[in-house]
Computed example of a mutant assay.
Amino acid sequence: MNAPRTRAISATERTGVLAPANLERFHAQWIAPADDVRDVVDTYWAVRWHLDAGERIEQRIIDHPSLTLSIEHGDVDAPFVVTSARSHAWTRTIAGHGDVFAIRLRPAGLAVLSDLDPSSPGPEQELTPALDTRAHALLARIAAAPDPARRAERADALVRAQLAERPLRASQRIANAALDALTAQPHVQRVPDVAAAVGTSERTLQRALRTHVGRGPGEIARRIRLQEVVRRLSAGEEDIPRIAVDLGYVDQAHLTNDFRRVAGVTPGAYVDGLVQMQAALRGRP
C-alpha cells in the first residue's frame, strides 16, 4: 500500500518555525511530490488560516536554504511569490483568512522551472510575468486546481514536462547531493569533507551551490544547523551545552552567538518565550 502523500507538519520536526505550536492553527501540511520529480521538488506544503477579527500572529521563521514558489490567496500581499532564504529570521504577520500552496525547490529546481538567477530574487518578491514568464505560467496553471492535493498532482505533471524539456546537468546533481549531505548531518562539517562525501572537488562543490542556490556550503550548513537547534529547543530540550556538543560547536558560547545573530535572541530567551506562549495558548477559550 502506498504511503499517504499528505500529512500534518509536526511541531517536533525540523522546519525552522520559531514557536512551532502555531502550526496547528495554520492547518499546516506537507504534500510529497511524485518520485520522478524529486530531483526538482523537495516538498509541497500548504497552510490555511482563519483568525478572529483583530487577531494577528507574528510568525517568525529561520528559512530552509532553498527557494520557494508559492500560490497565495486571501489576506496576502500577492497571488504568486518567489522566496529565497534570508540571512536572519524573518516575521510574517498573519491575520484574517487565507491559504498558501508552495513548492519548495531542490537546488536543481530553479533552472528547470524558471529563468531566474538564484541570487536575483529578493527575500520575498511578487512573481509577475515581467519577472519570470516561465515560472508565472507554471503557478497560474497549478492555481487553477481546486485544493492542495489536486494542485500537487497538477504540479507533478507540469514539473515532469519541464524536466523532460530541461534535463538536469551535472552541476545541478552535485548541488542536490551536497544539500542532501548537509541536511542529513546537521552538525559542523568541513567543506572538504562534504565535497569528498559527494565525490567532487571543493571548488566544484562551491561553484555548484553558488550557481543553483546562490549560497556557499558554509552558509547552507549553518542554516540547517540552526533549524536543528530550533527543533531541539522547541521539543523541550534545555541542555544547551549538550546541544552545542552534539552539533559540533566549539562551546556553548559559539552556539549562543550563532543563534542570537540569526534569531535575534539567545537560546535561553527563546525557551523562556516558548514557555510563556504555551501558557497563553492554554488560556485560550
Score class of each variant (00 low, 15 high):
Met1Pro: 11
Pro4Met: 05
Arg5Thr: 12
Ala11Thr: 15
Thr12Phe: 15
Glu13Thr: 03
Val17Tyr: 04
Ala19Cys: 01
Ala19Thr: 14
Ala19Ser: 12
Pro20Ala: 05
Ala21Val: 06
Glu24His: 14
Trp30Lys: 07
Ala32Pro: 01
Ala32Phe: 00
Ala32Tyr: 01
Ala34Pro: 10
Asp35Cys: 03
Val41Lys: 04
Asp42Trp: 07
Leu51Val: 04
Ala53Ile: 13
Gln59Tyr: 02
Ile61Tyr: 00
Glu72Lys: 15
His73Val: 07
Phe80Lys: 06
Val81Glu: 14
Ala85Asp: 11
Ser87Lys: 11
Ser87Trp: 10
Ala89Asn: 10
Thr91Glu: 15
Gly98Met: 02
Asp99Ala: 14
Phe101Ser: 13
Ile103Trp: 01
Pro107Asp: 02
Pro107Lys: 03
Gly109Tyr: 11
Gly109Leu: 11
Ser114Leu: 01
Asp115Leu: 04
Pro121Ile: 04
Glu126Lys: 09
Glu126Arg: 05
Pro129Phe: 09
Ala130Met: 13
Asp132Ala: 15
Leu139Phe: 10
Ala140Asn: 00
Ile142Phe: 07
Pro146Tyr: 10
Ala149Phe: 13
Ala155Arg: 06
Leu158Thr: 08
Ala170Cys: 02
Ala177Ser: 13
Ala178Lys: 09
Val188Pro: 01
Val191Thr: 14
Val191Lys: 02
Ala196Ser: 12
Gly199Cys: 05
Gly199Arg: 09
Glu202Ala: 13
Gln206Ser: 10
Gln206Phe: 09
Val213Asp: 03
Gly214Asn: 03
Gly214Glu: 04
Arg215Tyr: 07
Arg215Gly: 06
Gly216Gln: 14
Gly218Thr: 15
Arg223Ser: 12
Leu226Lys: 06
Gln227Cys: 05
Arg232His: 04
Gly236Ile: 03
Glu238Thr: 15
Asp239His: 07
Asp246Asn: 14
Gly248Lys: 00
Tyr249Lys: 06
Gln252Glu: 15
Gln252Val: 14
Gln252Cys: 11
His254Ile: 12
Leu255Pro: 05
Leu255Asn: 01
Thr256Phe: 06
Asp258Met: 11
Asp258Pro: 04
Val265Tyr: 07
Val265Met: 14
Tyr270Glu: 05
Leu274Gln: 14
Gln276Trp: 09
Met277Thr: 12
Pro285Gln: 00
